[in-house]
């Protein structure tokens, strides 16, 4: 490592902030682009499972709330792709790589939403898991990314409330509704447990090395379990893991999640991966004329 890079590493590890116009090592730039682009892809792909329910939402209020949430998430994608663009990768390229299957997005968005119960579990628990990661990103060494995270976290905080409200309403409803929630929780538990990634030690995580992330994967998962398992249990729901328990020292024990499944899913082989990418590709092509017209007018 040359002296300039060494100095840069010390600066970011010591809590320093990097701006777009600052010099940065190419490896740092490449890591940032990969990480932030995946976040953008996840926001954009993450709306598809929910979009499927806009037309089937049980009430007008729920339909409006879900539509607004979808708009929020797409807005997050726009902000995030903008940050990637300033780092050197144009948005059009990010979108093309996404639909070509060359870029990743979060595991949870590769799965189907079978019932309205899934919509509640996604908005409550998937968003809860996401906000734990995103809150840690407020401390990211790359300042433009950390800054937009403020707005993103602010919006995610009421998405969780929306999800919890959906769940509580169903839990206070009929046996059938409660069953839908339990089934959805059982379906989503596996993907939720792999959401934060394998328990790679923080000092071996290159994202932690550059202080792109400041939280280890297992630390995030423990925070999720500690915050949300009690909330799940108090509603009378069952977490489908007989080994799940909180030890006396405060650490949560759980069955080893299916890491092979995680790997399979994020490399493009999830149950809904192809279908959702097809939809994105179709819209990207279908709306090309809008971009052409707008950009021609502006020129």
């Amino acid at each position: 490592m040359d002296a300039r890079t060494q100095e840069f590493v010390e600066e970011v590890q010591g809590g320093g902030h990097v701006e777009t116009s600052d010099w940065m090592p190419e490896e740092y730039r490449a890591k940032l682009i990969k990480f932030i682009e995946m976040h953008g892809n996840s926001e954009l792909m993450g709306v598809l499972p929910e979009r499927e329910w806009i037309l089937r939402a049980p009430t007008l209020q729920r339909k409006l709330a879900l539509t607004a949430k979808v708009q929020d998430e797409v807005g997050h994608a726009q902000l995030i792709y903008r940050v990637v663009e300033d780092l050197g990768k144009p948005r059009a390229q990010s979108l093309q790589d996404l639909v070509d299957g060359k870029a990743k997005f979060h595991n949870v968005f590769h799965y189907p939403t079978k019932t309205w119960g899934d919509v509640g579990v996604i908005a409550w628990l998937v968003d809860a898991a996401a906000i734990i990661s995103q809150k840690a990103l407020l401390k990211c060494s790359y300042a433009p990314y950390a800054r937009i995270m403020k707005k993103i976290c602010w919006e995610e905080s009421f998405h969780i409330l929306h999800g919890r409200d959906v769940i509580l309403t169903m839990m206070n409803g009929t046996d059938e509704q409660r069953e839908l929630v339990q089934e959805a929780l059982t379906r989503w538990w596996g993907p939720l447990m792999t959401f934060h990634g394998t328990a790679i030690p923080a000092d071996e995580d290159p994202m932690v090395f550059w202080r792109i992330k400041s939280q280890g994967n297992e630390e995030a998962r423990q925070q999720f379990l500690d915050g949300y398992v009690p909330q799940i249990w108090e509603l009378g729901l069952t977490v489908p893991d007989p080994k799940l328990r909180k030890r006396d020292d405060g650490v949560w024990e759980y069955s080893e999640p299916d890491w092979d499944e995680l790997k399979r899913v994020v490399t493009g082989n999830g149950p809904k991966t192809a279908e959702r990418l097809d939809l994105r590709r179709r819209f990207l092509e279908q709306e090309a004329w809008v971009r052409d017209v707008v950009l021609a007018d502006a020129a």
Binding site: G75, Q78, D86, P144, R147, K151
Partner: peptide, 22 residues
């Protein structure tokens, strides 16, 4: 305070996006 950046073909669109985002 600086809130963020957006890409737009002109000022009119920029205003529309800014209204939506912020």
């Amino acid at each position: 305070q600086h809130a963020g950046a957006l890409a737009a073909p002109n000022a009119e669109f920029a205003e529309a996006w800014a209204r939506e985002q912020y």
